[in-house]
């Protein structure tokens, strides 16, 4: 009686491994409706609601100077942040619900995480292109003929196309990978893990804020953001994004899928 032995990894089986990574990526996209189409439609709906609000405000103001003031106010719109938060939720749900059944399909944790990362990067790029395109349309139509700003809000800057794509890409990736890190904590330690995680997060944030307040360095923090500018901040955002991605892997590699 002998055990069956498999040949060591060859280039062919490495190719097979890549296929399994990409299978996980495709798995995340199999329900494209939930992961992209529905959030996109909700975003368009939010745009329509915003347009209605802008129109109401403008029709209620007759004085041209006040109108200009109001339109300047529009440029501080935070409506498009919705999509970032939504994608973070997508990231959490995706990992939480596919990990168990993908591992049942014989996928290793490593291949699952790699495939998931590729899916998140792809989605970030997709959203970056879509949001950039919408920002150009918004500017070309003079804010949907209302002077409104949703995709050309002031924080997004007024840079070249590649700067805008970069900013949205990094922003999306940040939310995706923070979501991924949160999800892996949940997958591995369930509710008690979440509790510990958020408690430590609150302590960290409050501690940080206290530190800044005690050292009276809020003005300096503000200055830093202004000096770095939208694109500088985006570039710095790559650091926590990479840390979140790495943390997600460290947590997931010892996780056991449970139903």
């Amino acid at each position: 009686m002998t055990a069956i032995s498999y040949a060591p990894a060859t280039s062919a089986s490495r190719r097979g491994r890549m296929n399994r990574v990409l299978a996980v990526t495709r798995l995340h996209f199999v329900d494209i409706w939930s992961i992209f189409a529905v959030p996109f439609m909700i975003m368009i709906f939010i745009l329509l609601v915003n347009m209605a609000i802008w129109w109401l405000i403008l029709t209620s103001i007759s004085d041209p100077e006040s109108r200009a003031n109001a339109q300047e106010g529009f440029s501080y719109s935070g409506a498009s942040f919705y999509i970032y938060v939504y994608m973070m939720v997508v990231a959490i749900m995706t990992i939480n619900l596919t990990f168990s059944f993908a591992t049942g399909y014989g996928v290793t944790r490593r291949n699952f995480y790699l495939g998931t990362c590729i899916a998140f990067v792809t989605l970030s790029l997709l959203w970056a292109v879509v949001l950039t395109a919408l920002s150009y349309i918004e500017q070309a139509t003079n804010g949907w003929a209302l002077g409104g700003h949703m995709f050309s809000a002031i924080y997004f800057g007024d840079g070249a196309w590649y700067q805008r794509v970069f900013l949205h890409f990094v922003g999306m990736a940040f939310f995706f990978f923070v979501g991924a890190a949160v999800a892996t904590v949940y997958v591995r330690w369930k509710a008690s893990g979440m509790l510990t995680f958020f408690a430590s997060l609150v302590v960290l944030l409050v501690g940080g804020a206290a530190l800044v307040t005690l050292t009276e360095s809020w003005p300096r923090v503000g200055e830093w953001f202004v000096d770095a500018g939208s694109y500088g901040v985006a570039a710095w955002l790559l650091v926590p994004t990479a840390l979140a991605a790495a943390a997600g892997w460290l947590v997931l590699r010892k996780a056991t899928p449970r139903t």
Partner: peptide, 12 residues
């Protein structure tokens, strides 16, 4: 292939 008891799937 591991078919688990009461497997859950993504929401939609």
């Amino acid at each position: 292939c591991f078919i688990k008891e009461s497997q859950r799937y993504p929401d939609n």
